[in-house]
Design a protein around this nucleic acid. Structure first.
Length: 414
RNA sequence: GGACAGAUGGGUGAGUUGGCUGAAACCACUUCCCUGCUAAGGAAGCGUAUUCGUAAGGGUACCGAGGGUUCGAAUCCCUCUCUGUCCGCCA
């Protein structure tokens, strides 16, 4: 969540910055109003509580001196009523503030370009040249069915649409990619961990998936538990409610997990193939850093992912997201898009974000900086979405008879 | 799933006739003193959040979570969650 003190201190500045994320001034006005109201009520309540504490202490004095306490009792019980009233007011005020606050997106970094949609994103760098085909490249789903790597019908039979069974060399390729990426990330300085793929709602609030994006999550019936949409949830929330020793930063973690998304609202998009699935493997990177080091870390993570694609021989480009395309929790995001020959365009395969202290504030991830406790910065990025990497390899490495070459770096993993 | 037990500060662990305990003591940690040296001794400090204050320093809340009783609760009552042990069950 955003910093209410900052909102109060520099209202116009926050308004201007959040315009990039299409947050209206009225909403922020209302948020600030509720914050000030809350502070006011809290002050009144605390004063009343101070009185109560003081008076309560008199009782033992009176009783020791055998003085009459009936008058004191009346006085105090009136104050007690006041406390009850104020507490109720405070509760309502907190609720109303929280409702609004939890739905306000993060403040974008100054470098974020203004824009409405992905069309306004800014290309930072192209890496590698798309291959010139002497034939018409086939889409991965055709290749995959012909090679018997992808079994769409059985995926649907087992679950429903947007689930796929991966077979044969395809399945082995999936496993090889996971292993290769984890090894690569380790070389980049990320420690491998294995995490739960089900988390509680508190964790999902912490990283910002809840309350706003409940519709996109698979929930376990009858429990406050959800299948994770990304390992970012598990990895980041490992440090929720903790105060990390400053010497231990930065923390850099990587984990391979299945991810589950309902893809609500994406009806009709990428219906063919495995670009958009309800379940897919992804290798994730998460970093926890000191505030002054987080943008350096963002660059490092982008490079780690980019080099992964370079090593796989996949042409890609780095794109900085514009305000309108920026995710809810992100302050700055660099997407990495890989060349998809059958579509003749670059498609997102990784998204690397610095959320600054947005998630840290929600999840209470702090570190000890000398004597003081400060909010850490959290970053996350895919490295990579396995399904989409398979798509990219299939399409970029296909030859005319429909066979697929395997990138050199993977041969030792297959 | 069944039966017990428990949940206190970084750790161990006091505190259950309700008030002087936001919390003893010990350990760890920090600073200083002493000591001719990787030991020992001594002094002080050392939870989180929030609020007021330039600061010093106050206030408020928090002893798993939420409610209740009371002028007042870590201490009494209720509900929930989690953890441990034993049994059953399954990888």
């Amino acid at each position: 969540m955003i910093d209410l003190k900052l909102l109060n201190r520099d209202f116009d500045g926050v308004v201007t910055k959040l315009q990039k994320k299409r947050v209206s001034e009225e909403v922020l006005e209302s948020l600030k109003g509720r914050y000030l109201q809350l502070k006011d009520i809290r002050t009144k309540l605390e004063n009343a509580q101070a009185t109560q504490n003081e008076k309560s202490k008199l009782f033992q004095v009176y009783m020791r001196e055998k003085r009459d306490i009936s008058e004191l009792k009346i006085e105090v019980s009136e104050n007690k009523r006041l406390i009850a009233e104020l507490s109720e007011e405070l509760r309502i005020s907190e609720e109303s503030l929280g409702e609004l606050l939890l739905n306000i997106p993060n403040i974008p970094h100054d470098s974020v370009p203004d824009g409405e949609s992905e069309d306004d994103n800014v290309e930072l760098e192209k890496v590698g040249e798309p291959r010139k085909f002497s034939f018409e490249p086939k889409p991965h789903y055709e290749l995959g069915e012909n090679l018997n790597w992808l079994d769409f019908e059985r995926g649907i039979k087992l679950a429903k649409s947007r689930f796929t069974v991966v077979k044969g060399v395809g399945a082995r390729l999936e496993r090889a990619l996971i292993n290769y990426m984890l090894d690569h990330n380790r070389e980049c300085g990320f420690d491998e961990v294995s995490v739960p793929v089900i988390t509680n709602s508190t964790s999902l609030y912490g990283t910002g998936q809840l309350p706003k994006f409940e519709d996109d999550l698979f929930k376990i019936e009858g429990e406050e538990l959800y299948l994770i949409p990304t390992a970012e949830v598990s990895l980041t929330n490992m440090f929720a409610d903790e105060i990390i020793d400053g010497d231990e930063l930065p923390i850099q973690l990587t984990s391979a997990t299945p991810c589950f998304r309902k893809e609500a609202g994406s009806g009709g998009r990428d219906v063919r193939g495995i670009i958009r699935q309800h379940q897919f493997y992804k290798v994730e990177l998460v970093s926890i850093t000191k505030p002054e080091e987080s943008y350096e870390m963002l660059d490092k993570m982008v490079e780690c992912v980019s080099s992964l694609l370079t090593n796989l021989g996949l042409p890609h480009r780095k794109v900085q997201l514009c305000g309108g395309d920026l995710g809810f929790s992100a302050s700055k995001t660099v997407d990495i898009e890989v060349w998809i020959p059958s579509q003749g365009k670059y498609r997102e395969i990784s998204s690397i974000s610095n959320t600054e202290d947005f998630q840290a504030r929600r999840a209470k991830i702090r570190y000890r900086d000398g004597k003081k406790n400060r909010l850490a910065h959290t970053l996350n990025g895919s490295s990579l979405a396995i399904g989409r990497t398979i798509v990219a390899i299939m399409e970029n490495y296909q030859n005319e008879n429909g066979e697929i070459a395997i990138p050199d770096v993977l041969t030792k993993y297959l």
